[in-house]
Nucleic acid binder design. Structure first.
Ligand SMILES: [Mn+2]
Ligand SMILES: [Mn+2]
Ligand SMILES: [Zn+2]
Ligand SMILES: [Zn+2]
Lengths: 120, 120
DNA sequence: TTAACTAATGCGACTAAGTCGCATTTAAGT
DNA sequence: ACTTAAATGCGACTTAGTCGCATTAGTTAA
């Protein structure tokens, strides 16, 4: 599926800002925050946050708060857990296919925090 | 262990603010944020945050960011995962004894997010 | 094509969680 | 009691994220 389809399938208008934002997100190999990309983006901060929130509502994007109090975003293609190091604050995607389950709940995301292998 | 011991064992000075803060935290059955308790506390906001950070360093307290962008704190007595509902934003402690593991990492906390039983 | 409608954008102002510097107070050792 | 360093209160500050509003641009139908 291309970017135009991703946007139009959700009945959203195809704008320069949305195209640019999805292109950016598709390039990443791990979650990013606004600060990480603001220099490379032409759109305004408010436009970024409005669009990324809209994408989350439409379930194109997933986000979470990190230890640095910033919100990190990534394209929601394959659902997978994340690991955040409490010492170096690195964020990693856990690609192991087994997402832990929890009885009585519908789990949409899992975040592990702790000490990464580099920080042992 | 009483509150005085908890504080003195970490070589911290026993102050009114710290005693009040630990008493408050021990009463809770789930994590709380500053807003939840500010009306019941006499200490200043800065004192609250300085002490709670200090308690975290000393591993008396554990915290995490919730969906509402506030930091939630709880006494770190028994380590257990948490569940946060993406719809009603309720936070629950998972008392099931099995904390999921992750190979190659030292996991210090686990947060599940999703849809709680009340929000089905 | 063009016109009309409405959603999306940029901008500046604003909000609020959390932090910081500093003068004052207080805990703890002697 | 006296001394010293740590803790506190207060006000100012920082900054991620939000909001209102005037302007612009995407979409649809004539
Ligand atoms: Mn990921
Ligand atoms: Mn808990
Ligand atoms: Zn690390
Ligand atoms: Zn719920």
């Amino acid at each position: 599926m291309n970017i135009e389809e991703m946007i139009k399938n959700k009945n959203l208008r195809l704008t320069v800002a949305r195209t640019e934002l999805l292109e950016m997100l598709l390039k990443q190999s791990k979650p990013i925050c606004y600060e990480d990309i603001k220099e490379y983006m032409t759109m305004d901060k408010a436009t970024f946050y409005r669009n990324i929130s809209r994408f989350e509502e439409e379930e194109i994007v997933h986000s979470f708060e990190a230890n640095d109090k910033k919100r990190y975003f990534e394209i929601k293609i394959d659902k997978h857990p994340h690991f955040m190091c409490n010492y170096c604050h690195k964020i990693e995607c856990i690609t192991d296919p087994h997402t832990p389950l929890l009885e009585g709940y519908i789990v949409e995301s899992v975040m592990f925090k702790g000490r990464c292998s580099a920080c042992q």
